[in-house]
């Protein structure tokens, strides 16, 4: 845990800098507002200590055991972590997951932001369009998605029909190990509605006065966007970036449903959490699954820390 804490140190410092250096208009007071803060945080503290904290620590302990769910856990020290070093499927799943995170998150965020700006204001039928673009996100984790996605990327799907127009012979995109992961990335991009909504909400926080002022000064749309909208939206972009990365690393449901639970074909869509789940539940190897989970936590923690550290160079807070 100590090593983990130091991973966060950087981000915590960054946090401290942005949170702590603010000058408050009514004169700076160093007085703490502990009582009020703890009162506001009371539900969260309760939740942390009982519902999340306990089970998390339990899983940390389980990561040091051999635990098959049906019999008491048996302490084996770092054995699970040692096994992880030589587990080729685990290494493969890390590769799959990293590819997924680094390809799908930027595309999804860019799409979400672009559409949010486009759908923000100044066009007829906006709320209809918003709903249309959000609709896929509602379906993203439905049981029906496996069948629906096959209508697009299956052998008889839309994609092949389209390629057929140009005389290109298609194939089963989802069921070919070479292209299966791309279809899942597309699926994730397809559900860009979630970040889009958050961007939309964020855009509404950009004071109209600023935009008016920029127009009066004769700024072009693009200049206004880059110089005014983007900086004011940066906390929200930052939020989406951090959270989408965390989510993408833990991506599970879509691959689970589309591959029928096992990350096929031939492990090409075996996401880290999917492998972890299979070890834990299908193979009754919950000790190993817990070790994998804590390793993932460290990976995500490092990326989040980097994100927080970098944020002080580009995220602009108004407070």
């Amino acid at each position: 845990m100590a090593g983990l804490a130091s991973d966060y140190d950087m981000s915590a410092l960054g946090e401290l800098r942005t949170l702590g250096q603010k000058k408050i208009a009514g004169g700076s007071k160093e007085k703490k507002e502990n009582k009020a803060a703890y009162l506001f945080l009371l539900p969260w503290f309760l939740g942390l200590s009982v519902i999340t904290g306990g089970p998390m620590l339990a899983s940390l302990y389980l990561s040091l055991t051999k635990y098959n769910l049906l019999q008491p856990p048996e302490f084996i020290g770092l054995g699970n972590f040692a096994r992880m070093l030589t587990d080729e499927r685990l290494h493969n799943s890390l590769g799959v997951t990293f590819t997924y995170v680094f390809v799908s998150v930027p595309i999804q965020l860019a799409m979400g932001l672009a559409l949010a700006v486009l759908l923000n204001r100044g066009l007829r039928g906006l709320s209809f369009y918003r709903s249309v673009f959000y609709l896929p996100s509602l379906l993203g984790s439905s049981v029906a998605i496996a069948v629906l996605w096959k209508q697009v990327f299956g052998t008889n799907g839309l994609m092949n029909d389209f390629l057929g127009l140009f005389g290109i012979a298609g194939h089963g995109w989802i069921s070919d190990p070479a292209t299966a992961l791309s279809t899942l990335i597309t699926l994730n991009v397809w559900t860009f509605g979630a970040p889009m909504i958050i961007f939309l909400a964020g855009l509404r926080q950009v004071p109209a006065m600023y935009l008016e002022a920029a127009k009066v000064d004769g700024a072009s749309r693009w200049q206004t966007f880059v110089k005014i909208t983007l900086p004011l939206l940066s906390p929200i972009i930052f939020f989406n970036l951090v959270l989408q990365i965390i989510h993408a690393f833990q991506s599970f449901t879509q691959a689970f449903i589309i591959s029928g639970g096992n990350g096929g074909p031939a492990d090409s869509t075996l996401f880290y959490t999917l492998y972890l789940y299979n070890r834990g539940f299908a193979n009754f190897d919950m000790g190993y699954a817990s070790a994998m989970a804590w390793f993932l936590l460290v990976i995500i923690g490092v990326f989040t820390a980097i994100n927080f550290w970098a944020s002080k160079y580009w995220v602009f807070y108004d407070d």
């Binding site: 009982v50 089970p55 998390m56 620590l57």
Partner: peptide
């Protein structure tokens, strides 16, 4: 104190894990 509280709850959960098997 907080840490002790957390550990207590976690160990309760772990105890439960072992209690139920057998």
């Amino acid at each position: 104190r907080k840490a002790i509280g957390l550990v207590a709850i976690a160990s309760a959960a772990v105890l439960a894990l072992s209690a139920c098997a057998g």
